[in-house]
Design a protein around this nucleic acid. Structure first.
Length: 498
RNA sequence: GGCGCCAUAGUCUAUCGGUUAGGACGCCGCCCUUUCAAGGCGGAGAGACGGGUUCAAUUCCCGUUGGCGCUACCA
C-alpha cells in the first residue's frame, strides 16, 4: 500500500512555522516511503476561515520549498481538497452514524450547555456533555429535526473501558472512555467539526499515516472510535511535540515571531529555515549541521524524533542562515537579495514615496533603508515629544499591534483605519500620535509615509517592530496587558496546523 | 480541578544498562587580521528529585516535582 501523508492547515490566520514543521515531517516521511504528500484545507469554521489566509498559507508553504502531490491548488483524484466544498459528504456520513446508532441529535441550547458546565465546575467534576439527548427516542428526535428545531449531531462514547492509542513514538497510550466527551460531529450550521471531517477525509483520501501536533493527542480516542463506527482501518498515528517560546510555553505570536512570512521578510533563506526545522527532527551527524531535504528524507526516523517540545531558537537559525549565505557566491548573494526585496513593483512604489523627499541620488538608499531592514534601532528618547508627554506611548503601541492582528487584510487602508481608531480610543488626535508609530516602524520621527511603509513592510515585520518598541520602552505588566486588552477586540487565533 | 504527554548544559540534541556523557548554537579566551565580521584553535557548562530492579543505571519500573497540551457547535 502506498504511504500517504497530509498536512491540514486551518486558514484562520497567518501561515505558522508550526505548519511548516508538521508539513516537513509529513513530506519527508511520504517521500522516504515512496508515497504521496497531500495538502488539505480545513476551513469548516465559517466564522474564522478566510480566503486571504488560505492564499497566504499556500504561498508560504510553497516558499519553504515543500511541494504536495495533491491539494486545492494542484488538484488530485481525491478532491475537493477544501473541506468547505465537501459538506454533502460529511452530512452523508453523519447520517450514517445516526442510522447505525453511533451518534445522536442533541437539541441542547448553548445556554443549557453553559449551565451544565457551570454546575460541573461548581461540583468539581470533569466537564463533559452529560448525555441528556442520548435518551431522546429516535422517532421524537427525527420529528423535532423535521420540525426545524436546531440540533447538532454528537458521537456516542462507550460508558466504560479503555481506548489504547498506538503512537509511533510513544507506544500505547491509554485513555478511559469515561473521560472522553461526546463530541459534536455536525454543528447546527450543518458543517462538520474537525473530528468528523478529519476522519472522513483521511479515510476517503486514503491517508495512511497521520502525523500531527501533540495538541491532538487527547482527541485521538474520538477519532479511533469514529474509524471503528464506520468500519474503517485507522491510519498510523504519530504526534509531534509543539514548538516552544524560549520560556517553554507553546510558540505564540504574542511572544515571538511565528509567521513563516516573518522569516521570509526578515531575510532568512527557505533552505535554512527547513534545515533548522529538520534539526529538530533528525539529529545532525557529528559536525554536519547543514543538510537539505534529500538528506532529511534519508535520515528521518519517526520513532526517534525527540518528544520534548523544542524551543524555537532563533539564535541558532541566525547562525545556520549565515552558513547558507556564506556558501553562496557573491553573485548569488546579490541575486538572492534582489529577488527577495528588490522586485520591480516594490522598488517602483518605494521610488514614488521617496521622490519628493530626496535631493540627491545618494539620498535614496538611506531614506528607504528602513524598508529593507529587519528591525530598526529605537531608543526611549526617540518617542519623546511635547504632545506625547502625558500619553501612554506603550498603550498606543500595544493597541495598534493587537488591533492590526485581527484584520484579515493588511494594506495601507486597513492600517490607516486601525491606527486612527487607536487615536480615538486614547482620545488623542492622530496627528499627535503619529510620531509614536513613525519611530516604532521606521526608526525615525521623519520618514516616508507611514501607512504605505507599513503595507510595504508587511504584517509580520510590523508586529515585530511593535514588539521591539514596546520592549525598548520597558514592556507591559501583566495588569496593563489585561486592562489594555479590554479596550481592543482580542483575537487569540494563533494556532499551528493539524 | 480532571485526563494525557514530556524531562541530558541557557538552547537543539547523541548516547537504545558498563562512555573521561559526544556534537551544534550561544557564551568566554587565544590565533589570524588596518577595524569589524568570517574562519581556525581552546575553555566553562548537563543526566530535576526520591525510591526501587540490576554486579552495574542518564538509560528499565514507581513516586514526587516541574513544563506542556486537551478539557468549545475552534482547529
Amino acid at each position: 500500500m502506498t504511504v500517504r501523508t497530509r498536512v491540514a492547515p486551518s486558514p484562520t490566520g497567518d501561515p505558522h512555522v508550526g505548519t511548516a514543521y508538521v508539513a516537513l515531517v509529513n513530506y519527508c516521511f511520504a517521500k522516504q516511503q515512496g508515497g504521496d504528500f497531500l495538502l488539505r484545507i480545513e476551513d469548516t469554521d465559517q466564522a474564522r476561515s478566510t480566503p486571504e489566509s488560505e492564499r497566504a498559507i499556500l504561498a508560504a508553504l510553497r516558499w519553504t520549498g515543500l511541494s504536495w502531490d495533491e491539494g486545492p491548488d494542484v488538484g488530485g483524484p481525491h478532491g475537493p481538497y477544501r473541506q468547505s466544498e465537501r459538506s454533502a459528504i460529511y452530512e452523508r456520513y453523519a447520517a450514517e452514524l445516526l442510522a447505525t446508532g453511533h451518534a445522536f441529535r442533541c437539541f441542547c441550547t448553548p445556554q443549557r450547555l453553559e449551565e451544565m458546565r457551570a454546575a460541573q465546575r461548581a461540583a468539581k467534576i470533569p466537564q463533559k456533555y452529560d448525555g441528556r439527548c442520548v435518551a431522546v427516542p429516535d422517532a421524537e428526535s427525527a420529528a423535532r429535526a423535521a420540525a426545524g428545531e436546531p440540533f447538532v449531531v454528537r458521537m456516542k462514547v462507550p460508558a466504560a473501558g479503555v481506548c489504547i492509542v498506538e503512537d509511533v513514538a510513544r507506544g500505547p497510550v491509554p485513555f478511559e472512555y469515561a473521560t472522553v466527551d461526546m463530541q459534536v460531529l455536525l454543528k447546527s450550521d450543518g458543517l462538520p467539526t474537525y473530528h468528523l471531517a478529519n476522519v472522513v477525509d483521511d479515510h476517503l483520501m486514503e491517508v495512511t499515516h497521520v502525523i500531527r501536533g501533540e495538541e491532538w493527542m487527547s482527541s485521538a480516542p474520538k477519532h479511533l472510535l469514529l474509524y471503528s463506527y464506520f468500519g474503517w482501518t485507522p491510519p498510523v498515528l504519530m504526534h509531534l511535540p509543539l514548538l516552544r517560546n524560549p520560556d517553554k510555553s507553546k510558540l505564540s505570536k504574542r511572544k515571538n515571531p511565528t509567521g513563516i512570512l516573518f522569516y521570509e521578510r526578515m531575510g532568512y533563506l527557505p533552505e535554512a529555515l527547513l534545515n533548522f526545522l529538520g534539526l529538530l527532527l533528525a539529529a545532525a551527524p557529528e559536525g554536519q549541521e547543514m543538510f537539505g531535504l534529500p538528506a532529511l528524507i534519508e535520515r528521518l526516523d519517526l520513532a526517534k524524533i525527540s518528544l520534548g517540545g523544542p524551543v524555537f531558537d532563533i539564535a541558532k537559525l541566525d547562525w545556520l542562515n549565515g552558513q547558507y549565505l556564506r556558501h553562496l557566491t557573491p553573485a548569488e548573494l546579490i541575486d538572492r537579495t534582489a529577488s527577495w526585496g528588490f522586485d520591480r513593483a516594490r522598488i517602483d512604489r518605494i521610488a514614488e514615496l521617496a521622490q519628493s523627499r530626496v535631493e540627491r541620488l545618494s539620498d535614496l538608499v538611506p531614506t528607504a533603508a528602513f524598508l529593507f531592514a529587519g528591525r530598526v534601532a529605537v531608543t526611549p528618547e526617540a518617542f519623546a515629544g511635547a504632545k506625547l508627554a502625558e500619553l501612554d506611548v506603550r498603550k498606543a503601541l500595544a493597541l495598534a499591534m493587537w488591533r492590526l492582528d485581527t484584520q484579515a487584510v493588511f494594506d495601507k487602508t486597513t492600517v490607516e483605519v486601525v491606527l486612527k481608531s487607536v487615536g480615538e480610543t486614547l482620545g488623542t488626535k492622530f496627528r499627535d500620535l503619529s510620531r509614536v508609530y513613525y519611530v516604532a516602524m521606521t526608526g525615525s520621527p521623519t520618514s516616508l509615509p507611514l501607512f504605505d511603509s507599513m503595507e510595504l513592510l508587511g504584517r509580520d515585520l510590523c508586529r515585530e517592530r511593535f514588539r521591539v518598541a514596546l520592549d525598548v520602552l520597558g514592556g507591559m505588566s501583566a495588569k496593563e496587558q489585561k486592562e489594555w486588552q479590554r479596550s481592543t477586540s482580542p483575537d487569540e487565533s494563533d494556532g499551528a496546523a493539524a
